[in-house]
């Protein structure tokens, strides 16, 4: 009944640093459940992150954890995976870390289809630095650097991942905890680049500036704005206005995985 998260968490690390109502803790729980479901040997698991609130996640987990520089998680993780393909490699981070400064590494890791699972917590803001807008802050919304409303158009992270070549792309939200671990499990089990975007809550810097009176309001909007892919198929464009799709958005099991491809290079080099 009560889930034993504590066996996956380094002793003495709780309570964690995330703000009251921040969704990252919920995602971390989902990741722990997924790693347990996949029976990942934590000695053989690298959890890599960049910089930002979401990127503090690896520090809490008892595994080979690598808290890198802002935006560079996917590139560090590529080095880990290439050097030791037998390791399970999980990347995590936020929307700013992953798609702004980290965008180039994100799209190239997707392009390579290297076997890793990227859990991208999209809370629409740079939380750690106090609430600046990110490439995913909805247009028109407020942030500490868009006091007149965000003029920027934004990324659809999942489309970006699909367009770049990732072969398992899914989305869920912090208000759908069971789906978090289900999708991360499938991502881990998928051989290739798996991107799981979790629409997340930042009540402290995003919620406050965008008319969300409370943490609960933010969680409730995740429930109302999320539309499972299957349900969306039967809905009209108007009905889908302001919504986003959740579940598995794209999966390709044909595209070769990068380390497998490089194993062929080694065979040729040693055979020749």
């Amino acid at each position: 009944m009560a889930y034993d998260y504590e066996k996956s968490i380094r002793p003495g690390k709780l309570p964690h640093i995330w703000c009251p109502g921040c969704g990252h803790g919920i995602v971390m729980k989902g990741l722990i459940r997924a790693m347990d479901t996949c029976e990942l040997d934590r000695k053989n698991t690298a959890i890599v992150s960049g910089i930002g609130c979401a990127s503090r996640l690896p520090g809490y987990l008892d595994a080979c954890t690598l808290h890198t520089a802002h935006g560079r998680a996917a590139a560090f993780a590529t080095g880990v995976k290439m050097a030791k393909p037998e390791m399970n490699v999980i990347c995590c981070g936020g929307d700013g870390d992953g798609t702004a400064i980290g965008g180039n590494h994100f799209i190239h890791a997707c392009r390579r289809n290297i076997d890793m699972t990227y859990v991208l917590m999209n809370n629409y803001i740079y939380g750690m630095t106090g609430g600046q807008f990110s490439p995913c802050t909805p247009t028109g919304h407020n942030a500490s650097t868009t006091p007149y409303g965000n003029p920027d158009p934004i990324f659809d992270i999942s489309k970006l991942a699909i367009g770049s070549g990732a072969t398992f792309v899914a989305r869920t939200t912090a208000a759908h905890p069971r789906e978090i671990d289900k999708l991360i499990t499938q991502g881990i089990q998928h051989k290739g680049m798996a991107v799981i975007e979790v629409i997340d809550d930042c009540p402290t810097t995003y919620g406050r500036r965008n008319k969300f009176r409370s943490v609960v309001d933010m969680m409730k909007r995740l429930k109302t704005e999320a539309v499972p892919v299957k349900a969306a198929a039967k809905m009209t464009a108007e009905q889908l206005e302001g919504k986003f799709l959740t579940g598995i958005l794209f999966q390709d099991t044909e595209k070769p995985e990068y380390c497998d491809q490089y194993a062929e290079v080694i065979k040729k080099a040693q055979g020749a």
């Binding site: 690598l66 590139a75 560090f76 993780a77 080095g79």
Partner: peptide, 23 residues
């Protein structure tokens, strides 16, 4: 293993990541 990364920053990142595995 040889990898040509997407830029020099990524190259340096991959080197540090790989080194941590003992390579």
């Amino acid at each position: 293993k040889f990898i040509q990364m997407e830029d020099e920053i990524a190259a340096m990142a991959s080197v540090i990541g790989a080194s941590l595995t003992g390579a």
